[in-house]
Nucleic acid binder design. Sequence first.
DNA 1: CAGCATCCAGGCTGATACTG
DNA 2: CAGTATCAGCCTGGATGCTG
Lengths: 134, 134
Amino acid sequence: MTGLDARTLAPHFSRMKAQYDDPAQCPVRNVLDQLADKWSVLIVTTLAERPHRFGELKRAIGDISQRMLTQTLRELQANGMIERTVFPTTPPSVEYRLSPLGRSFLTPLAALVEWAYANHPAIRAAREDFARAA
Amino acid sequence: MTGLDARTLAPHFSRMKAQYDDPAQCPVRNVLDQLADKWSVLIVTTLAERPHRFGELKRAIGDISQRMLTQTLRELQANGMIERTVFPTTPPSVEYRLSPLGRSFLTPLAALVEWAYANHPAIRAAREDFARAA
DNA sequence: CAGCATCCAGGCTGATACTG
DNA sequence: CAGTATCAGCCTGGATGCTG
């Protein structure tokens, strides 16, 4: 039902664990760090729709501070997930769009999103049971 | 090449964004919070192998503090990802194992891990380019 | 418009000490 | 063995003010 069992996945997880002691070198840790940041995910999913300008992104996300938006955009850019294009108009205009790498990331991200929606009821139920037991 | 394009994924992402303003209710945010925590991932992947006792887990992971191990185990348990069994022996022994829900999570997690390994070179290259440009 | 610099409060986390 | 309790430091992240 899960498609893959623990045995099938073991090699991946072992590799991951083997390298976790050097976080900077661990691919999984890098991806996780990116995912860990809720702003990154929100930005990536917003850009999945279409390219956005700085102000557009800020309005689209709503409650992100300017500081966090700038900072997260730089990280995503540094990791090659998004491309930044400056149009030398007056006033200046900057467009952000997903790079091919960033678009390829949408696939595993979608798997996660689907799992989350499919299992959210189970998680909520588990929380209530746990709270009752405590 | 990615299997899914932005258009296909749009519905999921819109739903996600529609709910992000109430973090406690957003399924994706919940899953992300879990992933964000490196200890959670390490524990889940360790338990993917086989059930472990408390001390076993601590040794297997290595650099996790007792505090963080206990705390993260409680969270995972509260979310229904793992099952905790106490054997009333002397001295006491406690076993942790993945629940069916936890095992089902291995699938999307594996997708993420695979993407991470496949694209790590590209990410590293992007970082170097970015550093050079700056 | 698109950003940078600064300041500051709060939460996360590790270290340490103690218990059934 | 498998935890709980307490405390102190760090770093994240928001708010604010300023610039090309």
